[in-house]
Nucleic acid binder design. Structure first.
Length: 480
RNA sequence: GCCAGGGUAGCUCAACGGUGGAGCGGAGUCUUCAUAAGGCUAUGGAUGUGGGUCCGAAUCCCACCCCUGGUACCA
């Protein structure tokens, strides 16, 4: 039994989760469930990035203590995951001082021991109003920040620790080029490679304590400095599986077999993270799956536009599997996609109510009226179907679902051609064979569906493994 | 600016040198076991624009127009 350690990007918990978080959770959960179904020993970790100054500032703005503030948002993320039927095996918080602070300091020390961390002065444009550094392109035409127009920025120098990323240029190039870290899709790999080939510069991995307002993980042996958020955030993937506090557990699960992330944080996962791990002498992740972003009705999701979609609203209105289905079927997993409630309703009626739901109803009713004796045992393992497994191995969820829907259409065609209702009327003995085939098909569909729509799959299975199959209430009642 | 990907039916996308396809929506028809569901059929397109190569181009080449992403220390 192979182990499969999967992680999804640790969200920044400064606001409640939106539909984009739901998308990533559902993707990772579907992969997790699929691996479980083919017999792997699976562990899924996610967690919360909590050590950024922005969290502290957001808490202040909300008039709350940071801990209280992050506790609340953590709860919201866990609630959304739960309602999505997304099962985290581990939820590792970045504010966990016992485990995560020690773990990140240990990682730092390992890199340091290897001679990859050094002190250097960093000069940048600092806005006193915002209390942060800006890049020239982040400023308006007068070279001022947008929050405080009219106020000149100061050139400020600060001593920070740097990580010798440049040292790993060749290593990273080889890692990506030869798919030792396999990046899906290809064009993201090429982007990362292009970035590497342009020449890697060392990057700063600490901030002064004043600048970070003491919020974050102290640098070992230098408490005037706080770790740069990404240095510790990425390490949540290790802390959660016991790095530094349960070596046995860590040995069992490291390294990551798959990281699921959004396109915006490719560099950190494809370049920084492998370099840091290599420097620390630790095992490297094997695969990186990068999905796109969601727009809402063709527009970017934003608070100012007021079009942020709350996944809980959708679940309450339509049901979990409807949202899961939409995200998995209607959004091509590697490119950007659009979330539209109008489209969701269309897909609901066409695919879930008319095709899947109605097939289940009609087969169940046929069995009931034929007083069919069901001999199909519950199947536990996904049958190896190339088209299906290939689509899943490339994380093309929409292709895998299209394949399943092809089966549904096939079953409807079969029923139409065999006309079992006539066979029942004529007391034909053939009705048994026909229903056997139909029931077998429905059970297979349920099985293939489990990673995607676990609740629905379970309902179908429960209805169809009984000796006497009777019709039940519609799985997906049509909506007008 | 540079690099990469894309612009195909009302919508989402497939075909990547050989008679333009699928799903959804819309139309017709058959059927009645089923959630007014299902099956079948037809309809639907100067394949972004303009040139070129070729017996033949959505596909290859050139130019142009639009869209998306990347182009390091905001995460």
């Amino acid at each position: 039994m192979a182990k499969f350690y999967i992680t999804s990007a640790i969200p920044y918990v400064n606001a409640k989760p939106h539909i984009g978080h739901a998308q990533e959770f559902v993707y990772a959960d579907t992969i997790r469930r699929y691996h479980k179904a083919i017999g792997d020993n699976v562990l899924y970790l996610c967690g919360a990035d909590e050590n950024a100054l922005k969290i502290f500032q957001a808490a202040e703005k909300a008039g709350k203590k940071p801990q209280e503030f992050t506790d609340e948002h953590n709860k919201e993320f866990l609630e959304v995951a739960k309602r999505l039927n997304v099962q985290f095996d581990i939820w590792q918080r970045g504010s966990d001082e016992n485990k995560h602070f020690t773990s990140s300091q240990k990682l730092w020390e390992l890199c340091s021991k290897n001679g990859d961390i050094y002190k250097k002065s960093y000069t940048g444009l600092y806005c006193v109003g915002c209390e942060q550094f800006y890049e020239p392109e982040e400023l308006n035409e007068n070279g001022e920040c947008f929050e405080h127009p009219g106020r000149k920025l100061d050139k400020v120098s600060e001593e920070n620790y740097f990580f010798k990323l440049s040292k790993y240029q060749k290593f990273l190039e080889d890692l990506l080029l030869n798919n030792k870290l396999n990046i899906i899709p290809d064009f993201r790999k090429n982007e990362a490679l292009a970035f590497i080939k342009r020449g890697l510069q060392d990057f700063s991995i600490s901030r002064s304590k004043e600048r970070a307002k003491g919020w974050g993980i102290p640098v070992p042996n230098d408490h005037s400095q706080i770790m740069y958020v990404w240095f510790d955030a990425l390490n949540i993937y290790q802390t959660g599986i016991g790095f530094c506090w349960d070596e046995k557990k860590y040995k069992k699960w490291a390294p990551q077999d798959l990281m699921v992330i959004g396109k915006g944080i490719t560099r950190f996962h494809a370049i920084y993270w492998p370099a840091i791990l290599k420097s620390a002498g630790l095992k490297l992740p094997k695969e990186l799956f990068i999905h796109g972003y969601l727009t809402v009705d063709g527009q970017k999701m934003s608070k100012t536009l007021g079009n942020v979609v709350d996944p809980l609203d959708m679940i309450n209105k339509y049901g979990v599997d409807v949202l899961r289905y939409y995200l998995l079927k209607e959004i091509p997993s590697t490119s950007d996609g659009d979330f539209s409630e109008r489209r969701l309703k269309e897909v609901y009626n066409a695919d879930l109510a008319n095709n899947l739901g109605n097939l289940v109803s009609r087969v169940a009713k046929l069995c009931e009226s034929a007083n069919f004796n069901n001999e199909i045992a519950a199947k536990t393992h996904i049958i190896e179907i190339e088209e299906y497994t290939l689509a899943l191995s490339e994380y093309k969820f929409n292709d895998a679902l299209s394949f399943i829907w092809g089966k549904i259409t096939g079953l409807n065609q079969y029923i139409d051609s065999q006309k079992p209702w006539d066979l029942v009327k004529n007391n034909s003995p053939r009705v048994k064979d026909v229903l056997n085939h139909a029931v077998d098909g429905v059970v297979e569909v349920a099985l293939l569906l489990e990673p995607f729509l676990p609740e629905t799959a379970k309902k179908i299975e429960n209805q169809f493994i009984k000796q006497k199959i009777i019709s039940g209430s519609p799985l997906f009642p049509r909506i007008p």
